[in-house]
């Protein structure tokens, strides 16, 4: 399973969210899509999930051009609230079971227990942290080939972030899944990453293997990101 973006551009009116971007994501790797707010990270994930369409270029998942239907292969955790507030946690899981053939209810049950989420509780009564946990339960319970996580730590306290990182390590299928995490909070995901990609206002300005970066250049992902972004700021 490969996710491929070939010369992809996405415009919103006159503003470019992505400019002629080409990227390839391989199976069995965890990618970090890093960049400041508004740099095009979320748009990249939405393009892969088939929720927005490119103005130019092609987005493919497993050699299939992406449309809305690609969500059968792609699990997507959005930064937005994706729930129906009147539903209970259990009803939301039940809805996902009915919609996605690859959704594993046993895994969901296990995750709910681990994350201490009560299936009978109404979603509108959940705290922001617990809503974040529920989003993760819904995304991780799918046996999808591609897992997209958009700002999984947004607005969450350090305790919750920690538990999310642990869940990711426990529940990602490292042999079969391609995982792409878009975030500007690099510290938390650094231990997870195989590859780091810096996106800067629509342009890809760097891509590094995290191990190589540490061993050969002696830099952490955060340090490399900061220096790369600073260079770009200097050029601007």
């Amino acid at each position: 399973m490969t996710v491929k973006l070939s010369n992809v551009s996405k415009r919103y009116g006159k503003d470019f969210s992505l400019k002629n971007v080409s990227l390839a994501f391989e199976t069995g790797k965890i990618y970090g899509l890093l960049g400041p707010n508004g740099s095009g990270k979320s748009t990249t994930l939405k393009l892969i999930a088939g929720l927005v369409y490119p103005n130019g270029g092609k987005v493919e998942v497993d050699n299939e051009e992406v449309t809305r239907k690609i969500c059968r292969k792609v699990a997507y955790l959005t930064e937005l609230d994706m729930f129906y507030p009147s539903f209970t946690v259990g009803e939301m899981v039940e809805f996902y079971v009915s919609q996605f053939a690859d959704f594993d209810p046993k895994k969901a049950e296990q995750l709910l227990q681990e994350m201490k989420l009560d299936p009978g509780k109404k979603i509108k009564q959940l705290s922001k942290g617990n809503r974040g946990r529920l989003k993760l339960v819904l995304a991780l319970s799918r046996k999808s080939q591609v897992l997209l996580l958009d700002e999984p730590f947004s607005g969450l306290d350090p305790m919750v972030r920690d538990s999310i990182v642990k869940s990711l390590l426990s529940y990602i299928n490292f042999d079969e899944q391609t995982v792409i995490i878009a975030t500007h909070e690099i510290d938390e995901i650094e231990p997870l990453l195989d590859e780091a990609i810096v996106i800067f206002y629509g342009d890809i300005i760097g891509q590094k293997n995290v191990e190589t970066l540490r061993e050969e250049e002696g830099l952490s992902v955060l340090e490399w990101f900061k220096s790369t972004a600073a260079q770009m700021e200097g050029k601007k």
């Binding site: 929720l51 809305r68 239907k69 969500c71 959005t78 937005l80 994706m82 919609q99």
Partner: peptide
């Protein structure tokens, strides 16, 4: 949110 479109069922 339009996130109901994140669904493999036809429109």
């Amino acid at each position: 949110t339009q996130l109901w479109l994140y669904n493999q069922q036809s429109s």
